[in-house]
Simulated scan of single mutants.
Amino acid sequence: MTFGEQPAYLRVAGDLRERIVNGSLPPHTRLPSQARIREEYGVSDTVALEARKVLMAEGLVEGRSGSGTYVRERPVPRRIARSGYRPSGGANPFRQEQAAEEARGTWEATSEQETAGPAIAERLGVAPGDPVMRTRYVFRVASEPMMLSTSWEPLAVTGRTPVMLPEEGPLAGSGVVERMAAIDIVVDNVVEEVGARPGLAEELLALGGVPGHVVLVVERTYYASGLAVETADVVVPADRYRIAYHLPVR
């Protein structure tokens, strides 16, 4: 193989990808079998198999037990708008994360006290083993799961206060900024880091994805005068959503 020349399996995958994109292999069409790929492209079984694996990893095709491999319906990515913090009033607990202004979201949440592991302790600036409140969310739009979120709040800050449980009490469903203000803590900064990785099995099950799909992960932390009062991991399927930031210019 000369410099710059693609391996055979990537060339085969690239041609099949082009056929999927241009509609020659439309959604729900069965992908050519391994034997057909081998004959059509003059490659070995190993090359044909690796080419199919590439398309599956890219989310372009999916295997159906006992039936074969089929072209997947390609979703049109929708936007998840983020603007730093939720508006006051608590009318919609994830307005900033909705795919469109006209969308109406629902959510499920469960909270549980636990001890901070090393990674979460570092993000919150507490000692490993310190008590935190962990809250897990599943957000839906039009009944479709669109986003998962797991947040941690140090109980040294919220413990024994009316806002200890984010989704219970007088400010249930309100954003972090409003909840902290209720206990005289002024949130003045939020940091978000966005990355991508293969989705965990339980994440993809909850989001309706398939093994190998990539998810976007937003690692968010709220601060009050340098004190971390909440950190969270927000997980969205990368093939269905794009994250759009609305940043005011001061």
Rank of each mutant, 00 (worst) to 15 (best):
Gly209Leu: 15
Arg17Lys: 14
Lys53Cys: 01
Gly212Asn: 07
Thr221His: 02
Leu31Asp: 01
Val43Pro: 07
Arg197Cys: 09
Tyr85Glu: 09
Pro118Phe: 03
Glu167Ala: 03
Ile120Met: 05
Glu40Ala: 14
Met180Pro: 03
Gly89Tyr: 01
Glu178Thr: 09
Val186Ser: 05
Ser225His: 15
Gly59Asn: 06
Tyr241Pro: 00
Ala51His: 06
Arg11Leu: 09
Pro162Ala: 04
Met147Asp: 02
Val138Phe: 14
Gly63Leu: 02
Gly175Thr: 08
Val177Cys: 07
Lys53Arg: 15
Gly68Phe: 03
Gly90Glu: 05
Leu25Glu: 02
Leu25Ala: 04
Arg36Leu: 08
Ala51Gly: 05
Ala81Glu: 11
Arg78Lys: 13
Ala206Gly: 02
Arg17Trp: 04
Ile20Val: 14
Arg78Leu: 02
Thr2Arg: 13
Pro131Phe: 03
Ala81Pro: 00
Gly208Ser: 07
Leu49Cys: 11
Thr115Leu: 11
Val194His: 12
Met1Trp: 09
Leu216Cys: 06
Thr135Ala: 09
Pro166Phe: 08
Pro166Ile: 10
Thr150Gln: 10
Val76Thr: 14
Thr158Trp: 11
Tyr41Cys: 12
Pro87Ser: 05
Val229Asn: 01
Ile20Met: 10
Met1Gln: 09
Ala100Tyr: 14
Gly175Asp: 06
Val43Cys: 13
Met133His: 03
Val234His: 13
Leu227Asp: 03
Gly68Ile: 09
Leu49Ala: 10
Pro118Glu: 13
Gly23Lys: 10
Glu39Ile: 12
Arg36Pro: 00
Ile120His: 07
Leu216Asn: 02
Tyr85Asp: 13
Gly208Arg: 10
